[in-house]
């Protein structure tokens, strides 16, 4: 591994880039949601409040850390960085400039699935470690929700892979150049993916594990200061990660419809395509989550098992037949 690769992984287009993207995403989320609800949203830190998430992060890190008496101290204090690591590692498999990601292997998607499962597992561990009543209930809901959305999510991720005949994300992106986007090939898979990612992200209508009017902050209730800052950052990073994943798997990622073969600024154009698609998916998720009420856990499980799982199976069948 040479120095350039280290810079790529840690700075651009790797970790640092995605963390900043996460901050921007959180700001966009707050701002658009606010505007759709008739409010202003963040407005003080930076131009139009764009630095508000950053300010929140640093403010949280500087606060006093309260560790509950009966918590599992080791997991409680050291879990959040691991929780953060899950989506952070996932992002390096996603092509941001050029059609190849920094790291690319023939088995990318398997690793991505592991990352998604690991992040839920970490959330569960963190919640149990904090040993609160709200956390315990929340973990029950989290696990049930995970059990229901995982299958549709998995099948939805697999269908573009089948369409491309490739398990590597870079390979899937390359298969979509020349405007051969998989959203037209596997539209149902795309829809299922978006709905399942709402559940993975714990956003309405599936913000059941941290439903604030029922169980306070759910599994995050006992967290404060630095661990909370990490947890919050991880949430926005997962947001970006899943949007980037959706963009890469279904919308062609860095591959654009036009301007695919100019010599100058080719990397810039790739990056621009990527960002446009990620933000487009982001806006779609913002809109959906703003427009819906939270469902009950049994209703969510019902929806995933009786509607989305058959749909994603159907999609997979269609894709296999078409190939």
């Amino acid at each position: 591994m040479d120095a350039l690769e280290v810079v790529e992984i840690l700075v651009f287009p790797g970790l640092t880039f995605f963390v900043w993207l996460a901050f921007v995403f959180e700001w966009l989320d707050r701002k658009t949601t606010a505007r759709m609800q008739g409010r202003i949203g963040p407005m003080l830190a930076g131009p139009r409040g764009i630095l508000q998430p950053v300010a929140d992060f640093f403010k949280l890190t500087s606060k006093e850390e309260i560790v509950p008496q009966f918590s599992d101290k080791l997991v409680f204090e050291w879990g959040p960085p691991f929780f953060f690591a899950a989506p952070a590692i996932g992002t390096i498999f996603i092509p941001v400039v050029g059609l190849n990601a920094i790291v690319s292997s023939p088995y990318d998607l398997l690793f991505i699935l592991f990352v998604l499962a690991f992040s839920t597992l970490m959330a569960g561990m963190l919640g149990y470690a904090s040993a609160g009543r709200f956390s315990t209930i929340s973990i029950g809901r989290l696990v049930l929700q995970y059990a229901s959305f995982e299958i549709p999510l998995l099948l939805a991720i697999v269908s573009p892979a089948v369409a491309a005949g490739n398990l590597s994300i870079s390979g899937i992106v390359q298969a979509q150049s020349n405007f051969h986007w998989f959203v037209f090939v596997v539209p149902i898979g795309f829809a299922v993916f978006i709905v399942s990612s709402l559940a993975e992200l714990e956003k309405p209508p599936f913000d059941i594990p941290d439903a604030k009017t029922e169980i306070a902050a759910g599994w995050m209730t006992e967290f404060s200061a630095r661990p909370l800052a990490y947890v919050k950052l991880t949430e926005s990073l997962s947001y970006v990660f899943l949007s980037a994943l959706a963009a890469s798997l279904f919308l062609g990622g860095t591959a654009g419809p036009v301007l695919t073969n100019v010599t100058i600024l080719q990397d810039g154009i790739y990056l621009a395509y990527f960002l446009i698609k990620v933000f487009a998916i982001g806006f779609a998720i913002f809109a959906i989550k703003t427009a819906l009420a939270r469902v009950r856990i049994n209703q969510a499980a019902n929806l995933f098992w009786t509607v989305l799982t058959p749909l994603s199976l159907l999609q997979l069948g269609i894709v296999i037949l078409l190939r």
């Binding site: 759709m36 008739g38 409010r39």
Partner: peptide, 11 residues
Amino acid sequence: MFRTAFQRPIT
């Protein structure tokens, strides 16, 4: 929602 987003905020 989209209509509100393009109106003046009430705040």
